[in-house]
């Protein structure tokens, strides 16, 4: 028997959206299955890995533990909403440039968590980046390229003409 659906209106990636879905679905399920936005991934569905991170009113949250219904009237941003006008967000660009995305599965979550950090802290220290990303697991990169990409993007967002250090790309001499 199909579930009766509930309907909510909210802002999804900058546009008004109205979606109907079974009321017990999480935002993760709603995004992937009802909005067709499969850029939001999942690794445990229990809040234990951070892979499903999205922004709710600009704050990074776990979409696997957030009910779709609880998002009515709120602003939701997913990785699909980061690039604008066919141009990558500086964070996306830096992640691509440094190889901060290897398998790419945790990448959307890291990008959004980093975007939220840079929104409040345009010049984060390495320690602040580590703290801000401490809720996201990555098994490929060892996080280092991710830190460097966040730093590179932060500099560019501040208007600096930043380029990656040679050691970042080629190792130490």
């Amino acid at each position: 028997m199909p579930d009766p659906k509930a309907t909510i209106s909210f802002e999804l990636n900058g546009e008004p959206a109205t979606l109907a879905f079974a009321p017990h679905k999480t935002l993760l399920e709603v995004l992937r299955e009802d909005a067709g936005l499969t850029g939001t991934k999942h690794g445990c569905e229990l809040g234990e890995c951070g892979t499903c991170t999205v922004l709710l009113d600009g704050t990074p949250v776990l979409s696997c533990l957030l009910l779709g219904l609880a998002c009515a009237g709120h602003r939701v941003t997913t990785v699909e909403g980061m690039a604008a006008g066919g141009r990558l967000h500086p964070l996306q660009d830096a992640f691509a440039e440094l190889g901060a995305a290897q398998c790419g599965y945790c990448t959307p979550a890291f990008l959004l968590a980093a975007q939220a950090l840079l929104a409040v802290e345009p010049r984060p220290s390495r320690a602040a980046i580590k703290q801000a990303l401490a809720g996201n697991l990555c098994r490929c990169t060892g996080y280092l390229k991710i830190y460097e990409a966040v730093e590179l993007a932060a500099a560019r967002l501040r208007g600096e003409d930043a380029t990656p250090a040679r050691e970042t790309l080629y190792g130490h001499a």
Binding site: D3, A22, P23, H24, K25, T26, L28, E29, H42, C44, E45, L46, L67, L69, A70
Partner: peptide, 12 residues
């Protein structure tokens, strides 16, 4: 995917 069981959600 681990999913929630069905329930009614109320927001007083």
């Amino acid at each position: 995917m681990l999913r929630l069981p069905r329930f009614t959600y109320l927001q007083p």
